[in-house]
Write a protein that binds this DNA or RNA. Structure first.
Lengths: 69, 69
DNA sequence: TCATAATGTAAAGAGTACTTGTCATTATAT
DNA sequence: ATATAATGACAAGTACTCTTTACATTATGA
């Protein structure tokens, strides 16, 4: 089960940088960058903070894709 | 920022045990138990699986409570 | 009472989220 | 061209998620 996300899209909608998002949700820029690039699966707390910042819910940003084979 | 959850309530609604939930979402019973008791903050993937199982969204189960003081 | 199921607690180990720091690459604008 | 901002990559270290195993406690029911 992989995790995908549309963080980049949401940032584009709001026209904010990774650094600005990081600051807003109190995470480091590297963490935002890594999440955005799918380097790792964030905690639900990080996800909740990000979703809240964008005024949406977690499911609108993060998607569990069942691994195809 | 603390994390609270209503896992126990949702389990009660569906009348299923920790073990049944664990099996359904492919997590160990200990993990379900620990999440339920707030022992740690789960990954967003775990949260998504649990929310999907209950047919709801993450925000309906997990709450970020800003530490009051 | 006795058996069984469900929940709670604990501990060790593996894997990983997240931070801080540093540097390279790419875009934007003057 | 060159300065600056934004993004991308990498690495070391700390803290924590999650699994497995094992055992204790509490509920339920015959």
């Amino acid at each position: 089960m992989e995790l995908e996300n549309e963080l980049k899209v949401w940032r584009a909608r709001r026209d904010i940088t990774q650094a600005q998002l990081a600051e807003a949700v109190k995470l480091s820029r590297q963490t935002i960058h890594s999440i955005e690039r799918g380097k790792f699966v964030p905690s639900v707390l990080s996800a909740l903070k990000i979703a809240a910042f964008f005024g949406t819910n977690v499911e609108a940003i993060f998607f569990a894709r069942r691994d195809e084979r």
